[in-house]
């Protein structure tokens, strides 16, 4: 099989030319999918998710029981169920009770909830990793809880959480391919559409994979750069 496929490419100039043509023609719709949907979906979901994550982390460490419980249940439910199933519930399930949400927004909700739950654990751990003496130093100069949190604890926790959060961001880029199942025409759905017409699955899906790889590769370079910068001031 493999031999046949390779043979067909390298020995048949006409076939080679056709494949190159398909690859070229696919590139534009794939990149369009990436730029119009994959990337915005990633960025919007990540920002909303991080806000949710900070709130959840604060609820988890707060002394108010009910906040703690809500946060725990949320994190547990999201982490204990597949993202794919969550997306199906939001997009295909909710219309049954009259809530109809468009594909892009459904995906944003699904991914934000997911980032919110996973990142809240990262942020909570980062907050707890800041020595108790930092809170006390803040209190000792008269700060309130929220002043100490905002001025002393969160800036330090942010530094600690940037490396794991950038990993989450890179994972999210890849996870957005799941949005194809709720009809968002992000890059992977574009690939599916192209292959539906020409049956060149191996070529087109590999091309999509390559684009994901390039995006993630650049992100990991930025991540390395960020971490180096942050290292400068951390004791």
């Amino acid at each position: 099989m493999v031999k046949m496929y390779l043979n067909s490419i390298f020995t048949d100039p006409e076939r080679t030319a056709k494949l190159i043509e398909i690859a070229k023609n696919s590139l534009q719709p794939l990149l369009e999918g990436a730029i119009m949907n994959t990337i915005p979906l990633t960025i919007i979901s990540f920002i909303v998710g991080i806000i949710l994550a900070v709130l959840t982390a604060l609820a988890r460490i707060s002394s108010v029981k009910i906040f703690q419980i809500i946060a725990r249940v949320y994190v547990s439910a999201i982490r204990g169920t597949p993202l794919l199933v969550q997306l199906f519930i939001i997009f295909y399930g909710l219309p049954n009770i009259g809530i109809i949400i468009n594909p892009f927004l459904s995906a944003v909700i699904g991914f934000s909830l997911s980032v919110g739950a996973y990142a809240s654990e990262i942020i909570r751990a980062a907050i707890l990793s800041i020595p108790k003496g930092q809170w006390e130093a803040g209190y000792s100069i008269g700060m309130t809880y929220s002043q100490a949190l905002k001025r002393i604890i969160l800036p330090q926790a942010a530094k600690v959480s940037i490396p794991p959060l950038s990993n989450s961001f890179i994972s999210l880029v890849k996870d957005t391919s799941l949005a194809s199942v709720v009809l968002v025409t992000e890059m992977f759905r574009r690939a599916q559409e192209i292959t539906a017409a020409n049956y060149e699955f191996l070529l087109v899906y590999s091309e999509a994979a390559l684009i994901y790889w390039v995006i993630c590769f650049f992100l990991s370079i930025i991540q390395g750069f960020l971490e180096k910068r942050l290292d400068r001031y951390v004791s």
């Binding site: 020595p131 003496g133 930092q134 006390e136 130093a137 209190y139 000792s140 100069i141 008269g142 309130t144 002393i152 800036p155 330090q156 530094k159 001031y233 951390v234 004791s235």
Partner: peptide
């Protein structure tokens, strides 16, 4: 408590300076 705290200045054994 907050206003009482302002009357005292605390110096800690391990400094507890804000590292950032």
């Amino acid at each position: 408590i907050a206003s009482f705290r302002r009357l005292t200045g605390m110096v800690f054994q391990n400094y507890n300076l804000f590292p950032h």
